[in-house]
Design a binder for these strands. Structure first.
Length: 368
DNA sequence: CGCTTTTGACCTGCGC
DNA sequence: GCGCAGGTCAAAAGCG
Protein backbone atom coordinates (compact mmCIF):
# COMPACT_ATOMS: atom_id res chain seq x y z
CA UNK A 1 0.00 0.00 0.00
CA UNK A 2 2.87 2.27 0.53
CA UNK A 3 3.42 2.36 -3.11
CA UNK A 4 0.01 3.76 -3.48
CA UNK A 5 1.12 6.94 -1.92
CA UNK A 6 3.73 7.83 -4.38
CA UNK A 7 3.86 11.08 -6.10
CA UNK A 8 2.20 11.01 -9.40
CA UNK A 9 3.28 13.47 -11.93
CA UNK A 10 1.13 13.43 -14.91
CA UNK A 11 1.69 14.49 -18.42
CA UNK A 12 -1.03 14.12 -20.90
CA UNK A 13 -0.55 14.04 -24.55
CA UNK A 14 -3.21 14.03 -27.08
CA UNK A 15 -2.38 14.73 -30.55
CA UNK A 16 -5.05 14.87 -33.01
CA UNK A 17 -4.45 13.07 -35.78
CA UNK A 18 -4.20 13.03 -39.22
CA UNK A 19 -2.96 10.19 -41.08
CA UNK A 20 0.02 11.58 -42.81
CA UNK A 21 2.31 8.79 -43.41
CA UNK A 22 5.13 10.84 -44.72
CA UNK A 23 5.15 13.07 -41.76
CA UNK A 24 4.93 10.11 -39.54
CA UNK A 25 7.87 8.54 -41.17
CA UNK A 26 9.79 11.71 -40.85
CA UNK A 27 8.92 11.93 -37.25
CA UNK A 28 10.15 8.48 -36.71
CA UNK A 29 13.36 9.17 -38.47
CA UNK A 30 13.86 12.32 -36.54
CA UNK A 31 13.17 10.58 -33.33
CA UNK A 32 15.51 7.79 -34.10
CA UNK A 33 18.23 10.24 -34.70
CA UNK A 34 17.91 11.34 -31.18
CA UNK A 35 20.34 9.63 -28.97
CA UNK A 36 17.89 8.57 -26.40
CA UNK A 37 14.94 7.77 -28.44
CA UNK A 38 12.15 6.26 -26.56
CA UNK A 39 8.58 6.96 -25.73
CA UNK A 40 9.66 10.30 -24.72
CA UNK A 41 10.43 11.52 -28.14
CA UNK A 42 7.32 10.61 -29.82
CA UNK A 43 4.27 12.14 -31.16
CA UNK A 44 0.80 10.89 -31.29
CA UNK A 45 -0.70 10.72 -34.64
CA UNK A 46 -4.16 9.45 -34.23
CA UNK A 47 -6.95 8.90 -36.63
CA UNK A 48 -9.40 11.62 -37.46
CA UNK A 49 -11.81 12.41 -34.72
CA UNK A 50 -14.67 10.08 -34.38
CA UNK A 51 -16.18 11.35 -31.24
CA UNK A 52 -16.33 14.00 -28.67
CA UNK A 53 -13.05 12.94 -27.33
CA UNK A 54 -11.56 14.93 -30.08
CA UNK A 55 -12.83 18.04 -28.56
CA UNK A 56 -10.05 17.81 -26.15
CA UNK A 57 -6.99 19.85 -26.66
CA UNK A 58 -4.77 18.22 -29.12
CA UNK A 59 -1.89 18.22 -26.83
CA UNK A 60 -1.62 19.18 -23.33
CA UNK A 61 0.75 18.39 -20.66
CA UNK A 62 0.16 17.91 -17.04
CA UNK A 63 3.66 17.25 -16.18
CA UNK A 64 4.29 17.58 -12.59
CA UNK A 65 7.25 17.87 -10.32
CA UNK A 66 7.30 16.23 -6.96
CA UNK A 67 4.97 18.23 -4.81
CA UNK A 68 5.57 19.34 -1.31
CA UNK A 69 3.96 17.13 1.26
CA UNK A 70 1.15 19.51 1.85
CA UNK A 71 0.50 20.39 -1.68
CA UNK A 72 -2.79 19.68 -3.22
CA UNK A 73 -4.24 19.71 -6.62
CA UNK A 74 -5.28 23.22 -5.92
CA UNK A 75 -1.76 24.27 -5.61
CA UNK A 76 -1.14 23.40 -9.12
CA UNK A 77 0.11 25.95 -11.47
CA UNK A 78 -0.69 25.89 -15.09
CA UNK A 79 1.43 23.75 -17.21
CA UNK A 80 1.87 23.67 -20.89
CA UNK A 81 -0.89 23.06 -23.21
CA UNK A 82 -0.36 23.26 -26.84
CA UNK A 83 -3.28 23.00 -29.07
CA UNK A 84 -2.90 21.99 -32.57
CA UNK A 85 0.33 22.89 -34.13
CA UNK A 86 -0.34 26.42 -33.36
CA UNK A 87 2.15 27.68 -30.93
CA UNK A 88 0.05 30.74 -30.53
CA UNK A 89 -2.16 28.60 -28.45
CA UNK A 90 0.32 29.29 -25.77
CA UNK A 91 0.40 27.61 -22.48
CA UNK A 92 -2.51 26.50 -20.52
CA UNK A 93 -2.36 24.60 -17.38
CA UNK A 94 -4.07 21.88 -15.65
CA UNK A 95 -5.84 24.40 -13.57
CA UNK A 96 -6.68 26.18 -16.70
CA UNK A 97 -8.50 23.16 -17.75
CA UNK A 98 -10.17 23.15 -14.44
CA UNK A 99 -11.34 26.60 -15.10
CA UNK A 100 -9.09 28.11 -12.58
CA UNK A 101 -7.21 30.46 -14.72
CA UNK A 102 -9.07 30.32 -17.86
CA UNK A 103 -12.60 31.09 -18.64
CA UNK A 104 -14.21 28.22 -20.36
CA UNK A 105 -17.41 30.05 -20.63
CA UNK A 106 -20.28 28.59 -18.79
CA UNK A 107 -18.52 25.36 -18.33
CA UNK A 108 -16.94 24.87 -15.03
CA UNK A 109 -15.40 21.63 -15.84
CA UNK A 110 -12.77 20.11 -17.88
CA UNK A 111 -15.35 17.82 -19.19
CA UNK A 112 -17.57 20.57 -20.36
CA UNK A 113 -14.70 22.44 -21.69
CA UNK A 114 -13.69 19.53 -23.75
CA UNK A 115 -17.07 19.30 -25.22
CA UNK A 116 -17.44 22.96 -25.81
CA UNK A 117 -14.14 23.52 -27.45
CA UNK A 118 -14.07 21.64 -30.66
CA UNK A 119 -10.44 22.13 -31.21
CA UNK A 120 -10.61 19.56 -33.82
CA UNK A 121 -12.53 20.95 -36.58
CA UNK A 122 -11.57 20.86 -40.12
CA UNK A 123 -9.08 18.52 -41.59
CA UNK A 124 -6.86 21.50 -41.99
CA UNK A 125 -6.98 22.12 -38.35
CA UNK A 126 -6.20 18.58 -37.67
CA UNK A 127 -3.36 18.63 -40.01
CA UNK A 128 -2.04 21.78 -38.61
CA UNK A 129 -1.79 20.01 -35.40
CA UNK A 130 0.59 17.47 -36.67
CA UNK A 131 3.85 19.23 -36.38
CA UNK A 132 6.12 19.46 -39.25
CA UNK A 133 9.16 17.25 -39.21
CA UNK A 134 11.33 20.16 -38.46
CA UNK A 135 9.33 21.41 -35.60
CA UNK A 136 7.64 18.44 -34.21
CA UNK A 137 10.10 16.87 -31.95
CA UNK A 138 11.30 19.97 -30.26
CA UNK A 139 7.83 21.28 -29.83
CA UNK A 140 6.52 18.08 -28.58
CA UNK A 141 9.34 17.78 -26.20
CA UNK A 142 8.67 21.23 -25.00
CA UNK A 143 5.13 20.44 -24.33
CA UNK A 144 5.77 17.20 -22.72
CA UNK A 145 8.84 17.97 -20.86
CA UNK A 146 8.57 17.04 -17.35
CA UNK A 147 10.95 18.63 -14.96
CA UNK A 148 11.80 15.26 -13.68
CA UNK A 149 12.43 14.04 -17.14
CA UNK A 150 13.89 16.72 -19.27
CA UNK A 151 14.07 14.51 -22.24
CA UNK A 152 10.77 12.95 -21.86
CA UNK A 153 8.04 13.17 -24.28
CA UNK A 154 5.72 10.59 -25.46
CA UNK A 155 5.33 9.54 -28.92
CA UNK A 156 3.07 7.11 -30.40
CA UNK A 157 1.86 6.89 -33.84
CA UNK A 158 -1.18 5.15 -34.93
CA UNK A 159 -2.72 4.48 -38.19
CA UNK A 160 -6.30 4.24 -39.02
CA UNK A 161 -7.89 2.40 -41.76
CA UNK A 162 -11.30 3.58 -42.49
CA UNK A 163 -11.67 1.49 -45.53
CA UNK A 164 -14.14 -0.44 -43.53
CA UNK A 165 -15.25 -3.91 -42.96
CA UNK A 166 -15.83 -4.69 -46.56
CA UNK A 167 -12.23 -4.39 -47.39
CA UNK A 168 -11.28 -6.53 -44.65
CA UNK A 169 -13.77 -9.21 -45.23
CA UNK A 170 -12.37 -9.68 -48.67
CA UNK A 171 -8.88 -9.88 -47.42
CA UNK A 172 -9.91 -12.18 -44.70
CA UNK A 173 -11.61 -14.54 -47.06
CA UNK A 174 -8.46 -14.89 -49.06
CA UNK A 175 -6.30 -15.26 -46.06
CA UNK A 176 -8.39 -17.93 -44.55
CA UNK A 177 -7.66 -20.16 -47.47
CA UNK A 178 -3.99 -19.53 -47.15
CA UNK A 179 -4.12 -20.16 -43.48
CA UNK A 180 -5.58 -23.54 -44.05
CA UNK A 181 -2.64 -24.48 -46.18
CA UNK A 182 0.04 -22.82 -44.22
CA UNK A 183 -0.40 -23.11 -40.56
CA UNK A 184 -0.80 -26.77 -40.20
CA UNK A 185 2.68 -27.06 -38.88
CA UNK A 186 2.46 -24.15 -36.63
CA UNK A 187 1.62 -24.23 -33.05
CA UNK A 188 -1.15 -21.77 -33.28
CA UNK A 189 -3.24 -23.01 -36.10
CA UNK A 190 -6.38 -21.41 -34.93
CA UNK A 191 -7.55 -18.89 -37.43
CA UNK A 192 -7.04 -15.50 -36.03
CA UNK A 193 -8.62 -12.32 -37.07
CA UNK A 194 -5.25 -11.09 -37.99
CA UNK A 195 -6.00 -10.57 -41.60
CA UNK A 196 -8.27 -7.78 -40.69
CA UNK A 197 -6.65 -4.46 -40.69
CA UNK A 198 -6.86 -2.96 -37.32
CA UNK A 199 -8.86 0.11 -36.82
CA UNK A 200 -7.01 2.52 -34.70
CA UNK A 201 -8.95 4.36 -32.11
CA UNK A 202 -7.94 7.80 -31.02
CA UNK A 203 -5.16 7.55 -28.57
CA UNK A 204 -3.76 9.71 -25.95
CA UNK A 205 -1.28 9.22 -23.24
CA UNK A 206 0.04 10.72 -20.13
CA UNK A 207 3.04 10.34 -17.98
CA UNK A 208 2.76 9.59 -14.35
CA UNK A 209 5.47 9.70 -11.83
CA UNK A 210 4.75 6.61 -9.91
CA UNK A 211 6.29 3.44 -8.75
CA UNK A 212 3.20 1.61 -9.71
CA UNK A 213 3.07 0.48 -13.27
CA UNK A 214 -0.55 -0.29 -13.66
CA UNK A 215 -2.43 2.74 -12.56
CA UNK A 216 -5.88 2.50 -11.19
CA UNK A 217 -8.20 4.53 -13.30
CA UNK A 218 -11.41 3.08 -12.08
CA UNK A 219 -11.83 0.58 -14.84
CA UNK A 220 -11.05 -3.05 -14.81
CA UNK A 221 -8.27 -4.13 -17.06
CA UNK A 222 -6.96 -7.41 -18.16
CA UNK A 223 -3.43 -7.80 -19.19
CA UNK A 224 -3.09 -9.54 -22.49
CA UNK A 225 0.48 -9.07 -23.36
CA UNK A 226 3.87 -7.78 -22.47
CA UNK A 227 6.72 -6.92 -24.70
CA UNK A 228 10.24 -5.82 -24.26
CA UNK A 229 10.74 -2.32 -25.49
CA UNK A 230 13.66 -1.49 -27.64
CA UNK A 231 16.19 0.72 -25.98
CA UNK A 232 14.47 0.31 -22.71
CA UNK A 233 15.07 -2.11 -19.90
CA UNK A 234 11.45 -1.90 -19.01
CA UNK A 235 8.77 -3.95 -20.67
CA UNK A 236 5.56 -2.59 -22.07
CA UNK A 237 2.35 -4.09 -20.84
CA UNK A 238 -0.85 -4.30 -22.79
CA UNK A 239 -4.22 -4.15 -21.13
CA UNK A 240 -7.76 -4.41 -22.34
CA UNK A 241 -10.90 -3.27 -20.62
CA UNK A 242 -12.64 -6.31 -19.24
CA UNK A 243 -16.11 -5.00 -19.81
CA UNK A 244 -17.94 -6.95 -22.44
CA UNK A 245 -17.93 -5.24 -25.74
CA UNK A 246 -15.59 -2.54 -24.61
CA UNK A 247 -12.51 -2.56 -26.70
CA UNK A 248 -10.55 0.06 -24.91
CA UNK A 249 -6.92 -0.76 -24.55
CA UNK A 250 -4.07 0.75 -22.77
CA UNK A 251 -0.36 0.30 -22.78
CA UNK A 252 1.82 0.91 -19.85
CA UNK A 253 5.52 1.30 -19.85
CA UNK A 254 8.23 3.01 -17.96
CA UNK A 255 10.36 5.68 -19.37
CA UNK A 256 13.84 4.46 -19.93
CA UNK A 257 15.09 7.93 -19.16
CA UNK A 258 13.39 8.14 -15.87
CA UNK A 259 12.20 4.86 -14.42
CA UNK A 260 9.97 6.72 -12.07
CA UNK A 261 7.89 7.87 -14.97
CA UNK A 262 5.12 5.64 -16.17
CA UNK A 263 3.76 6.30 -19.60
CA UNK A 264 0.22 5.15 -20.10
CA UNK A 265 -1.43 5.21 -23.46
CA UNK A 266 -5.14 4.77 -23.90
CA UNK A 267 -6.77 3.72 -27.08
CA UNK A 268 -10.46 3.79 -27.71
CA UNK A 269 -13.39 4.85 -25.69
CA UNK A 270 -15.29 3.03 -23.06
CA UNK A 271 -18.83 2.21 -24.00
CA UNK A 272 -19.87 1.84 -20.44
CA UNK A 273 -19.77 3.90 -17.31
CA UNK A 274 -16.83 3.66 -15.07
CA UNK A 275 -17.31 1.06 -12.41
CA UNK A 276 -16.19 3.60 -9.93
CA UNK A 277 -19.10 5.83 -10.54
CA UNK A 278 -21.16 6.10 -7.50
CA UNK A 279 -23.24 8.26 -5.31
CA UNK A 280 -24.29 11.77 -5.74
CA UNK A 281 -21.00 13.24 -6.54
CA UNK A 282 -21.00 14.53 -9.99
CA UNK A 283 -19.24 12.27 -12.28
CA UNK A 284 -18.71 11.81 -15.85
CA UNK A 285 -17.73 8.48 -16.96
CA UNK A 286 -14.83 8.81 -19.19
CA UNK A 287 -14.10 7.79 -22.63
CA UNK A 288 -10.71 6.80 -21.58
CA UNK A 289 -10.12 6.97 -17.95
CA UNK A 290 -6.70 7.46 -16.71
CA UNK A 291 -5.03 8.36 -13.55
CA UNK A 292 -2.43 7.54 -11.09
CA UNK A 293 -2.09 4.61 -8.87
CA UNK A 294 -3.97 6.25 -6.15
CA UNK A 295 -5.80 8.76 -8.12
CA UNK A 296 -7.31 9.00 -11.44
CA UNK A 297 -9.05 11.54 -13.42
CA UNK A 298 -11.36 10.72 -16.07
CA UNK A 299 -12.06 12.04 -19.45
CA UNK A 300 -15.46 12.74 -20.79
CA UNK A 301 -17.76 10.13 -22.01
CA UNK A 302 -18.88 10.58 -25.54
CA UNK A 303 -21.82 12.88 -25.87
CA UNK A 304 -23.99 10.13 -27.16
CA UNK A 305 -23.34 8.09 -24.14
CA UNK A 306 -24.00 10.99 -21.90
CA UNK A 307 -27.33 11.54 -23.49
CA UNK A 308 -28.26 7.99 -22.88
CA UNK A 309 -27.16 8.14 -19.33
CA UNK A 310 -27.84 11.71 -18.53
CA UNK A 311 -28.83 10.86 -15.04
CA UNK A 312 -25.38 9.65 -14.36
CA UNK A 313 -23.87 12.97 -14.96
CA UNK A 314 -24.15 15.82 -12.63
CA UNK A 315 -24.15 19.38 -13.68
CA UNK A 316 -20.55 20.23 -13.48
CA UNK A 317 -18.13 17.70 -12.33
CA UNK A 318 -14.73 18.97 -12.99
CA UNK A 319 -12.66 15.98 -12.89
CA UNK A 320 -13.18 12.58 -11.58
CA UNK A 321 -10.52 11.60 -9.21
CA UNK A 322 -10.57 8.25 -7.72
CA UNK A 323 -8.47 6.27 -5.45
CA UNK A 324 -7.81 2.63 -5.64
CA UNK A 325 -8.28 2.43 -1.97
CA UNK A 326 -10.77 5.12 -1.33
CA UNK A 327 -12.35 6.44 -4.39
CA UNK A 328 -13.63 9.89 -4.53
CA UNK A 329 -14.93 12.08 -7.21
CA UNK A 330 -14.80 15.61 -6.06
CA UNK A 331 -17.08 18.07 -7.60
CA UNK A 332 -15.94 21.05 -5.73
CA UNK A 333 -17.03 24.51 -6.53
CA UNK A 334 -15.13 26.88 -8.64
CA UNK A 335 -14.87 29.21 -5.73
CA UNK A 336 -13.32 26.56 -3.64
CA UNK A 337 -10.79 25.94 -6.25
CA UNK A 338 -10.01 29.53 -6.75
CA UNK A 339 -9.57 29.99 -3.08
CA UNK A 340 -7.34 27.03 -2.99
CA UNK A 341 -9.51 25.27 -0.50
CA UNK A 342 -9.67 21.72 -1.57
CA UNK A 343 -12.20 19.51 0.03
CA UNK A 344 -10.78 17.77 3.00
CA UNK A 345 -11.50 14.70 1.07
CA UNK A 346 -8.60 15.48 -1.11
CA UNK A 347 -6.25 16.56 1.51
CA UNK A 348 -6.75 13.47 3.50
CA UNK A 349 -5.61 11.11 0.90
CA UNK A 350 -2.53 12.73 -0.34
CA UNK A 351 -3.32 11.53 -3.72
CA UNK A 352 -4.34 14.26 -5.99
CA UNK A 353 -2.18 16.51 -4.07
CA UNK A 354 0.62 14.71 -5.69
CA UNK A 355 -0.37 16.02 -9.00
CA UNK A 356 1.55 19.12 -9.72
CA UNK A 357 1.96 20.76 -13.03
CA UNK A 358 5.28 20.94 -14.68
CA UNK A 359 5.61 24.65 -14.77
CA UNK A 360 5.21 25.05 -11.10
CA UNK A 361 8.82 24.43 -10.69
CA UNK A 362 9.71 26.49 -13.64
CA UNK A 363 7.75 29.43 -12.40
CA UNK A 364 8.97 29.07 -8.92
CA UNK A 365 12.46 28.92 -10.22
CA UNK A 366 11.89 32.04 -12.21
CA UNK A 367 10.50 33.86 -9.26
CA UNK A 368 13.53 32.96 -7.27
C1' DC B 1 -13.85 -22.63 -10.33
C1' DG B 2 -13.43 -18.47 -12.55
C1' DC B 3 -10.62 -14.78 -13.48
C1' DT B 4 -6.07 -12.80 -14.23
C1' DT B 5 -1.31 -13.00 -15.40
C1' DT B 6 2.54 -14.92 -17.78
C1' DT B 7 4.87 -15.99 -21.79
C1' DG B 8 6.26 -17.78 -26.22
C1' DA B 9 4.63 -17.74 -30.79
C1' DC B 10 2.53 -15.47 -34.39
C1' DC B 11 0.90 -11.49 -37.19
C1' DT B 12 1.51 -6.99 -39.17
C1' DG B 13 3.64 -2.90 -40.77
C1' DC B 14 7.59 -0.52 -41.93
C1' DG B 15 12.40 0.47 -43.16
C1' DC B 16 16.27 -0.96 -45.66
C1' DG C 1 12.37 -9.86 -49.79
C1' DC C 2 14.22 -9.74 -45.33
C1' DG C 3 14.62 -8.32 -40.73
C1' DC C 4 13.04 -5.80 -36.93
C1' DA C 5 9.85 -4.07 -33.66
C1' DG C 6 5.26 -3.41 -32.11
C1' DG C 7 1.09 -5.61 -31.18
C1' DT C 8 -1.91 -9.68 -30.30
C1' DC C 9 -3.21 -14.38 -29.33
C1' DA C 10 -3.96 -18.19 -26.45
C1' DA C 11 -2.34 -22.06 -23.59
C1' DA C 12 -0.60 -22.68 -19.19
C1' DA C 13 0.12 -21.21 -14.68
C1' DG C 14 -1.16 -18.56 -10.73
C1' DC C 15 -4.35 -16.79 -7.48
C1' DG C 16 -8.31 -15.89 -4.45
Amino acid sequence: MNEMKQNHNISIVRINSVEKREEKKELTRTALKTENFNMANSTFITPPPTSDIDHMPNVFSLSTPPPPPTSSIFDMIPCDITTGGDQKAGSLGFMDLLDINQDFGASASLFEWFNQNPVVGSPQQQQSFVPSPASTVPETSEVLNNPATPNSSASISSSSNEAGEDAFQQVKAGDQEEEQDQDKNKKQLKPKKRSQKRLREPRFAFMTKSEVDHLDDGYRWRKYGQKAVKNSPYPRSYYRCTSAGCGVKKRVERSSDDPSIVVTTYEGQHIHPSPIIRGSIGIFADSSGFGAATSSFVFPQPALYQQKHASMYSSSPSLNFTSSTTRFSPSFSLQERRLGNPPSLLRDHGLLQDIVPSQMIRKEAKEE
